[in-house]
């Protein structure tokens, strides 16, 4: 079972995102004033400064904006993964999220910009929060 670092709490901006993750819900925020999409989670709108934000649940589909394959990481949490792909995913609802692309034979060959991906929830040995990662559709 994967053993990724867990989010650490208390942390007021990100707590609700990770509680939703326990229900396998990928959440983002939208401003009730200017309709701007906010991500990563915050208590204010980064476009207009409004404090009135709605939390929404993403369909969990999007495309790889860019990626890299990490060959060397001294953090022991990632020692068992081998080479792994980190990526920014552009979700269809208009937010960009850092994640990993998983479920490919060879991340150095099978991940590319523009690739369609879908979220999946990876259970962790390291703690109670499942981690959202993405798999090619």
């Amino acid at each position: 079972m994967p053993n990724r670092p867990m989010p650490v709490f208390p942390e007021p901006d990100t707590q609700a995102f990770w509680e939703a993750a326990k229900r396998h819900e990928l959440t983002y925020q939208q401003c009730n004033s200017c309709r701007g999409v906010v991500f990563t989670p915050r208590a204010h709108c980064t476009a207009c400064g409004s404090l009135d934000l709605a939390t929404k649940v993403s369909r969990g589909e999007g495309e790889v904006y860019t990626y890299s394959v990490v060959r060397q990481n001294r953090n022991p949490s990632f020692a068992d993964l081998g080479a792994y792909a980190v990526a920014y995913i552009d979700l269809d609802e208009g937010f960009r999220m850092l994640s990993n692309v998983v479920g490919v034979n060879d991340p150095t060959k099978d991940v590319h910009c523009g690739q369609r991906v879908r979220v999946e929830w990876e259970t962790q040995e390291s703690g109670d929060y499942p981690i959202p990662v993405f798999r090619p559709i």
């Binding site: 989670p41 060397q72 850092l98």
Partner: peptide
């Protein structure tokens, strides 16, 4: 732990990547 690290630390993103 902060607003960024909680969204990034699970993914093993390094400075080089």
């Amino acid at each position: 732990s902060n607003w960024q690290s909680n969204m990034e630390n699970p993914y093993g993103h390094t400075l080089v990547s």
